[in-house]
Amino acid sequence: MGIGTSIFLLAVGAILTFALNASIGGLDLNVVGWILMAAGVVGLIMTTLVWGRRRQVVATTEEPVEYRRVEERRDVAPPL
């Protein structure tokens, strides 16, 4: 589940819990909203953990093979 999906679940859950005052035969929309918000929070935490592991920087001790100094000359016309 991505960050966007998690935020969407949080938003829909909050709307069902706090904004709507309706009931559908035997289904409590407040409970459904809380469940969706919980799923969104869990998804957001899991996504953060997965992306956090992927973005670890691996340091290498090798130096670049070659360094070059680049100079820009302004007296030569650019190629066409």
Rank of each mutant, 00 (worst) to 15 (best):
E71H: 02
T48L: 13
R68L: 14
F8N: 12
L10Q: 05
E62K: 01
A39H: 01
L9H: 08
D28P: 08
L29V: 13
G26W: 07
L16W: 08
W51N: 03
N21A: 07
V70C: 05
R68V: 12
I7M: 05
T48A: 13
I15R: 01
T60I: 12
T17N: 07
V70Q: 09
E66S: 02
T17C: 06
E62A: 15
M1Y: 03
T48W: 04
R54S: 09
F8M: 11
M37A: 14
L29C: 06
M37T: 10
N30H: 10
L10E: 11
Q56R: 14
I15E: 06
R68N: 07
R73V: 11
R68P: 00
G33C: 04
V32A: 13
G33N: 07
R73D: 15
N30D: 07
G2P: 15
I15D: 08
R68D: 12
A59Q: 15
G2C: 09
M46G: 09
I45G: 03
G52R: 09
A39Y: 05
Y67G: 02
V70T: 11
G33F: 04
V70H: 09
Y67C: 02
L9G: 08
G2K: 03
V31D: 14
E71S: 05
E62R: 04
R54W: 00
A19E: 15
V42H: 00
V32W: 12
M37N: 03
Q56L: 10
D75F: 02
V31N: 14
A19D: 15
R53A: 08
G2S: 15
G4F: 09
N30L: 11
V12N: 04
G43H: 04
V12S: 11
W51E: 14
A77W: 04
L29Q: 10
G2Y: 09
T17S: 11
L49K: 04
T47D: 15
F8C: 08
V41R: 00
I3G: 04
I15K: 00
A19F: 09
L36R: 02
G25T: 12
R73Y: 10
I24C: 03
I24W: 11
G26T: 08
L36G: 07
V65R: 06
A39W: 09
L27I: 15
Q56F: 04
E63V: 06
D28S: 14
Q56A: 08
I15A: 13
G26N: 12
L10W: 06
T17G: 00
A77R: 04
N30I: 11
I35Y: 06
L16N: 11
G43R: 02
G25Y: 10
L49G: 01
A14S: 15
G25A: 10
V65N: 01
L27Y: 09
W51Y: 10
L49H: 00
I45R: 00
